[in-house]
C-alpha cells in the first residue's frame, strides 16, 4: 500500500494508535498509582495493619494501563501484525488510530483522577477500618469510564476489521 495521509501509511497510523493507547493508559496508571501509594504508604507507616485494606486502592488505577496494553494487543492481533500479514490502507489505518483514542485519552485522564479519588478513599480507611469496603466504591466509579472507553475502542476496532 503506497497511499498515505499526512505522510503516514495505514500501518504507521495503526502503530501510532496502538502506541498512543499503551502510552496514555500507562501514564494514567503510573500517576494514579503513585498518587494513592504516596498516601497509603504514609498510612501504613503509622498503622501497618491497614496494609491489606489500602492495597486495593493503590492497585486500582493500574487497570487503565492494562486497558491500554489490551488495546495495543488487539490492534496487533486483529490486523495481522504478528503474522506479518498486516495490510491496511491509509484510511483504514487512520480509522484504527481514531479507534485507539478513547482508551488513549480517557484511560490517561481517568487513571489520574482515580488516583485523586483513591487518596480521599484512603483517608476514609485511615479513620475507620470498617469503611474499607465503602472506600473502594468511589474510585471504582471512575473506573466505569475507562471500561466504557475500552468497550468503544474494541467495537470500533471490530468495525474496522469487519
Amino acid at each position: 500500500m503506497n497511499d498515505v495521509i499526512l505522510g503516514m501509511s495505514g500501518l504507521e497510523w495503526a502503530y501510532f494508535g496502538a502506541a498512543l493507547a499503551a502510552i496514555g493508559g500507562g501514564i494514567g496508571s503510573a500517576i494514579g498509582i503513585t498518587s494513592v501509594s504516596n498516601t497509603t504508604t504514609g498510612i501504613v507507616a503509622e498503622d501497618a495493619e491497614k496494609f491489606g485494606k489500602v492495597l486495593p486502592l493503590s492497585a486500582m488505577p493500574g487497570t487503565q494501563g492494562i486497558y491500554g496494553f489490551i488495546t495495543a494487543l488487539l490492534v496487533f492481533i486483529f490486523f495481522g501484525f504478528f503474522e506479518g500479514t498486516a495490510d491496511l490502507t491509509a484510511a483504514e489505518g487512520l480509522r484504527v488510530f481514531f479507534a485507539c483514542l478513547p482508551v488513549a485519552i480517557l484511560c490517561m485522564v481517568s487513571g489520574i483522577y482515580q488516583g485523586a479519588t483513591g487518596v480521599g478513599a484512603a483517608g476514609m480507611v485511615a479513620r475507620r477500618d470498617e469503611d474499607a469496603g465503602k472506600a473502594l466504591i468511589f474510585p471504582a466509579l471512575v473506573e466505569t469510564y475507562a471500561v466504557f472507553a475500552l468497550i468503544v475502542t474494541i467495537l470500533m476496532l471490530l468495525n474496522v476489521q469487519g
Binding site: 500517576i31 503513585t34 498518587s35 494513592v36 501509594s37 504516596n38 498516601t39 497509603t40 504508604t41 504514609g42 498510612i43 501504613v44 507507616a45 503509622e46 498503622d47 491497614k50 489520574i112 483522577y113 488516583g115 485523586a116 487518596v119 484512603a122 483517608g123 485511615a126 479513620r127
Partner: peptide, 22 residues
C-alpha cells in the same frame, strides 16, 4: 495540583489521616 499535591504531600497526609485518630 491533582498530580503535584499527592506527589509532594501524599506521605505526610497519609500519616496525618492515621494520627488524627489518635
Amino acid at each position: 495540583r491533582v498530580i503535584s499535591d499527592p506527589m509532594r504531600y501524599g506521605f505526610a497526609v497519609g500519616r496525618v489521616r492515621v494520627l488524627e485518630t489518635r
